[in-house]
Amino acid sequence: MFYSMWFEAFSVSTGIVALAEIGDKTQLLALLLAARFKKPWPIVGGIFAATVVNHALAGAVGAWLLTLIGPTGLRWGLGLSFLAMACWMLIPDKLDEEDTRLRDGAGVFLATLIAFFLAEMGDKTQIATVMLAAKYPLLWPVVLGTTLGMMLANAPVVWFGERAARFLPTRLVHGIAALLFAALGVLALLGIGMP
C-alpha cells in the first residue's frame, strides 16, 4: 500500500510537471542560459539545485495546507485549483525582463541557481507542486517527482538547445497537461483519490 501510494505520487508529479514545463518561462530561461554561457553541466546543476529547494519549499506549503484545511475544504480547494491550473496551462508563457537578469559577477552555476529559483517563484510548476503535495500525504515523492519532471523538460533544452525546445508541439503538450489537471480537479471535487 505504501509503495503504491509512493509510486503514484512520484509518477503523477513527474508526468504533470514535465508536461507543464514544456514551453514554460523557466524552460525559455534554460534555453537563454544555455545560449549565453555555453556550459551545460553547471547550468543543469544550477537548475537542479534551484528546483530541489524551490519545490521542497512549495511541497512544505502544500503539506502544511493538508494539515490546516479540513477534508472538505481541501477537496474543494484542490479541485478548483486543479481546474484553474488547467485553464492557466492554455495561456502561453513569456520571459519577463526580471527573469533574464543575471548577476555578472556570479559563476555559471550560481547565476543559474539564482535566476532559475526566482523565475520559478509563483510559476505554474511551483503552484502545481503545492497542490500535489496537498493532494498526496507523502511529501518527498512529490518533490522528487516534480524535480525529475523539471529536469526531463529542461536538461534536453540545455544540452540540445532550440531544437530540443521545438521537438514537441507546445500547444499539444499544454493541451494534454490541461486535460490532466482538469481530470485531477474533477476527481478531487468528487473526492476520488483524496487523502
Rank of each mutant, 00 (worst) to 15 (best):
134 A>H: 03
118 L>E: 04
100 T>I: 07
104 D>G: 13
55 H>Q: 09
175 G>M: 11
141 P>L: 02
111 A>T: 08
128 A>D: 10
33 L>I: 09
108 V>T: 05
156 P>H: 10
89 M>F: 13
125 T>V: 12
100 T>D: 06
22 I>A: 12
119 A>I: 06
65 L>E: 01
82 F>K: 00
186 V>R: 05
118 L>I: 10
97 E>Q: 14
174 H>I: 07
125 T>I: 07
163 R>W: 08
104 D>C: 00
97 E>Y: 10
105 G>N: 15
162 E>R: 02
66 L>R: 12
168 L>I: 14
5 M>S: 06
40 P>R: 08
61 V>P: 02
162 E>I: 12
132 L>N: 12
60 A>Y: 10
142 V>S: 07
52 V>G: 03
194 M>P: 00
184 L>I: 03
135 K>L: 15
84 A>N: 02
29 L>M: 05
134 A>V: 04
119 A>W: 04
153 A>H: 09
173 V>S: 02
43 I>C: 06
170 T>H: 13
79 G>R: 08
15 G>K: 10
94 K>H: 14
86 A>Q: 13
9 A>F: 00
119 A>H: 03
190 L>Q: 12
42 P>F: 02
111 A>Y: 00
151 M>S: 10
4 S>W: 15
38 K>N: 14
5 M>F: 00
110 L>G: 07
9 A>P: 06
140 W>G: 02
76 W>P: 05
89 M>R: 09
3 Y>W: 15
160 F>A: 14
138 L>A: 07
121 M>G: 01
74 L>S: 02
1 M>Y: 14
181 F>C: 04
27 Q>G: 08
188 A>F: 12
160 F>H: 08
94 K>M: 11
94 K>N: 13
19 L>C: 07
174 H>Q: 14
106 A>D: 15
81 S>H: 05
121 M>A: 11
37 F>Y: 15
152 L>A: 01
180 L>R: 07
110 L>C: 10
147 T>R: 04
28 L>G: 08
131 M>L: 15
169 P>F: 15
119 A>Y: 05
38 K>H: 06
41 W>L: 14
22 I>W: 03
31 L>K: 04
172 L>K: 14
74 L>F: 12
16 I>K: 06
34 A>F: 08
59 G>M: 03
189 L>W: 04
6 W>L: 00
47 I>D: 05
166 R>Y: 10
116 F>H: 01
137 P>H: 04
63 A>V: 09
52 V>E: 01
183 A>F: 15
142 V>Q: 03
96 D>Q: 04
106 A>Q: 14
33 L>D: 07
169 P>K: 15
30 A>W: 08
148 L>G: 06
99 D>N: 03
148 L>K: 02
148 L>C: 06
185 G>C: 12
62 G>R: 13
19 L>Y: 01
58 A>F: 06
140 W>H: 11
